[in-house]
């Protein structure tokens, strides 16, 4: 794990970005009648009968930093851990967990809560608690050993 990178509290940018994410979820519902869960769209892009728009959606996600670059003159700020084994395990767990649990931060956290789904609320509480506990253990118990 990298040393802890300090970040600023950005309520307005975060709220604005959140509204855009919500807007995208509404577009997917109004246009395609589907939940904008990225884990589900990812799986559907490979296996669904209707793959085209899902592949295009993921292409849109991948293209977003380029639009950001054009609009702001700089690539988005990002600090990714260089601990490759840890990142591999993290990726595997995110994939398995979102598939088994039928959703991720967007599918359960945004779309599920917007539908007032009890299942999604249970999932959101569970993944937030486990994620916070993981960070606590890695940063404050093991102390950056990963």
């Amino acid at each position: 794990m990298l040393p802890i990178t300090p970040t600023d509290f950005t309520p307005w940018a975060s709220l604005g970005g959140g509204i855009l994410i919500g807007l995208s979820a509404v577009m997917v519902m109004a246009l395609f009648g589907r939940i904008a869960g990225i884990a589900g769209i990812t799986a559907g892009a490979a296996t669904s009968d209707d793959r085209g728009w899902r592949i295009a959606f993921i292409a849109g996600l991948i293209a977003a930093p380029l639009l950001w670059l054009v609009a702001s003159g700089a690539m988005p700020e990002q600090t990714v851990s260089g601990n490759l084994p840890a990142m591999g395990i993290a990726g595997l767990m995110v994939g398995v967990g979102t598939a088994l649990g039928s959703g991720c931060t967007s599918g359960h956290g945004v779309c599920g809560l917007a539908r007032l789904s009890g299942r999604s609320l249970a999932a959101v509480i569970t993944f937030l608690v486990f994620a916070a506990a993981t960070v606590f253990v890695l940063r404050h118990v093991i102390g950056g050993a990963v």
Binding site: G101, F127, F130
Partner: peptide
């Protein structure tokens, strides 16, 4: 179980799928 496994992975890497 899925949500818990996802949460641990999210806490290690800081990435969710999007």
């Amino acid at each position: 179980t899925g949500a818990a496994v996802f949460g641990i992975g999210w806490g290690i890497g800081g990435f969710c799928p999007g």
